[in-house]
């Protein structure tokens, strides 16, 4: 099958593999510990681990966009902030 029209690149492929891995991990966790580990976090929201993944990914996207808009490249700093945000989300949100 000719996939050249999709214009794949290695970085974007890696990004989608990462998203697929996140979803696969969520599925495995859900099978092992069903229920989604619901709790009420510091934002006052009732979240399951799927919600926390969503909040982390969406928040990270905006961290990168803000950094690009205000400071431009390189993107090591927003990467570090996004990882910290991920820790905060899964630990406390």
């Amino acid at each position: 099958m000719n996939m050249t029209w999709m214009a794949w690149t290695w970085p974007t492929a890696a990004f989608f593999v990462f998203i697929a891995c996140c979803l696969a991990t969520m599925t495995v966790l859900e099978l092992k510990r069903p229920g989604g580990a619901p709790r009420r976090g510091i934002l006052g929201l009732d979240t399951t681990r799927g919600d926390r993944l969503f909040i982390w990914l969406l928040g990270s996207a905006f961290i990168f966009l803000f950094w690009l808009g205000f400071f431009g490249t390189p993107l090591y700093a927003p990467l570090a902030i996004a990882l910290c945000w991920g820790f905060v989300t899964f630990r406390w949100v």
Binding site: T4, W5, A7, T12, F15
Partner: peptide, 20 residues
């Protein structure tokens, strides 16, 4: 699949002819 394609396009430049 269209969304993935848009992500791929967003990091490239093309002048047509499927060359990126």
């Amino acid at each position: 699949i269209p969304l993935m394609t848009v992500v791929n396009y967003s990091v490239q430049e093309t002048f047509g002819d499927n060359t990126f």
